[in-house]
Design a protein around this nucleic acid. Structure first.
Length: 466
RNA sequence: UCCCCGAUAGCUCAAUUGGUAGAGCGAGCGGCUGUUAACCGCUAGGUUGCUGGUUCGAGUCCAGCUCGGGGAGCCA
């Protein structure tokens, strides 16, 4: 008897009549007076479950089988047969069932065989992977992560492992977490009363990265096509369904490329990973369509079949002004788009993902390339219905004199960016890249409303229990 | 961080104008059934988030706190 995963048994990759071993966790048990019990078994290999038929002739039927409850772990030996009942094609006629782990106090088992609210499940994050939703989420997340690596690998990109810890506190993407080994209760001080970071582990202030972009640009300007994919940290006190303090970000960077090349890449890339998801996880997507967001599969198919809507920032402003809508925040060239504006553009005006390009330079970071008009920079945001900003990117400023001017304008110190500036001194080339939030991508694909439910262990303000 | 809303049984919720708490699901026991969110009956299970206040009396009213949700800002 060989151990098979339920996915293989259900998919017909195991010949009917085979003697097999299954290992997994009980979801439900139903007893029949015909002298048998039905056990639905999950092992995480797919959305589906295997029905195990346990006859009362099993030695431990009365003593153990009848006491199985949701969550118990068991090993089943038996024969894979065509099901006599409705609801499944095959089932396993058990010849023996070994209980590996009981559930203490079934009355208080946190994952009962019933619906639970997501709010509640966040409080039992160590057990929620046993639910349909979080099993599906984990498989979708894995599938997308694999598809991302596959896309880049197949297109000649190198995965660059940019650092988690950075000494640069000027990455310009929000508040950062400090990394230190100093004794908080007894901080060393310099003569003028400041904290003496020369005594800290790195001999200088260190922080968790908010973006690998500046680092990955160095490899882009040597290896042409690169990307990062790793954890990213923001210490913002953000309490929303689309922000995490720790999230995973994908940041490709391409050399000899402009903003249009960048948008082309974003579009091709997203279509690829969603195609893979539709191909490889139809079971889980069907669940999300049935129980979470009815439109999610159609939305992905539509995404793949249609081209991105690309509009200029100035066009977006015009469209908002002509919308006739009364917005809480004013619509005016030179001001950033508010959430209500983005929602109108992507959910009402165009009703699909939209790329907004070429923003006023005063609302964007120093590293974005100044356009010929002198007023805008080559920035782009990809907005998705229901999620908002899913991608933020730009063509980078490759001209040292312009870059320096921007650093000065914004009030930053050129010396702090000495190695970044060096890239513009030695063989500079036009280049561009973007950042994609993995969790927001999963939200878009599944319809999951809260970002805390598309990552195994959410890190948010006042929450790091697990 | 700001603005709203919420916290009652293991879970999801109910409880009139303040009068000492109920249901469904889950769990246990029994019945029935190749069952499948099974069904029927019985049983157990609660210092109503915490602290204080008003009152003869607080789940209910008031204040503070903690936690959670939605919206906003920051962004991916």
């Amino acid at each position: 008897m060989t151990h098979v995963m339920i996915v293989d048994a259900l998919a017909g990759r195991v010949p009917p009549g085979s003697s097999i071993t299954l290992k997994g966790w009980v979801r439900t048990r139903r007893d029949s007076k015909a002298g048998l019990s039905f056990i639905h078994l999950h092992d995480g290999s797919c959305f589906g479950q295997m029905q195990v038929v346990a006859p009362n002739t099993l030695a431990n039927y009365d003593s153990e089988i009848l006491k199985l409850t949701a969550g118990c772990s068991i090993i089943v030996h038996g024969q894979l047969v065509d099901s006599q009942g409705k609801g499944q094609d095959v089932e396993v006629q058990a010849s023996s069932i070994q209980i590996v782990g009981w559930v203490d106090d079934p009355d208080a088992y946190p994952i009962a065989a019933k619906r639970h609210s997501f709010e509640y499940l966040r409080e039992v994050a160590h057990l929620r992977p046993r639910t349909n939703t979080f099993g599906a989420m984990a498989r979708v997340r894995h599938c997308l992560a694999q598809a991302i690596h596959r896309y880049f690998h197949e297109h000649g990109f190198l995965w660059i492992h940019t650092p988690i810890i950075t000494a640069s506190d000027c990455e310009g993407a929000g508040e950062m977490f400090r990394v230190s080994t100093l004794d908080l209760a007894n901080l060393p001080r310099t003569s003028d009363g400041e904290i003496d970071f020369s005594q800290d582990f790195f001999g200088r202030p260190a922080l968790l990265t908010v973006s690998g972009q500046l680092n990955v640009e160095t490899y882009c300007l040597a290896l042409s096509k690169v990307y990062t994919f790793g954890p990213t940290f923001r210490a913002e006190n953000s309490n929303t369904p689309r922000h995490l303090a720790e999230f995973w970000m994908i940041e490709p960077e391409i050399a000899f490329a402009d903003l249009n090349d960048n948008a082309d890449l974003a579009e091709d890339f997203l279509k690829f990973i969603f195609r893979v998801l539709l191909d490889e996880r139809p079971d889980d997507l069907a669940f999300f369509a049935q129980r979470i967001e009815p439109q999610c599969i159609k939305r992905l198919e539509g995404f793949i079949d249609s081209s991105f809507e690309r509009i200029e920032y100035a066009e977006a402003i015009d469209a908002l002004k002509r919308s006739g809508k009364s917005f809480e925040f004013p619509v005016q060239w030179g001001r950033d788009l508010q959430t209500e504006h983005e929602r109108y553009l992507t959910e009402e005006h165009l009703k699909r993902p939209v790329v907004v390009m070429n923003y006023p330079k005063q609302i964007k970071p120093f590293y974005m390339r100044v356009n010929d008009d002198g007023r805008t920079v080559a920035a782009m945001d990809v907005l998705a219905p229901g999620i908002g900003e899913i991608i933020g990117g730009s063509q980078r400023e490759e001209r040292l004199d312009v870059l320096d001017q921007r650093i000065d304008e914004i009030g930053l110190n050129q010396d702090d960016y000495w190695w970044y500036r060096d890239l513009r001194r030695y063989g500079t080339v036009p280049h561009a890249g973007f950042g994609l939030g993995l969790e927001r991508t999963i939200q878009y694909a599944t319809g999951m409303a809260n970002i805390r439910d598309v990552i195994p262990f959410a890190r948010t303000p006042k929450n790091a229990e697990f």
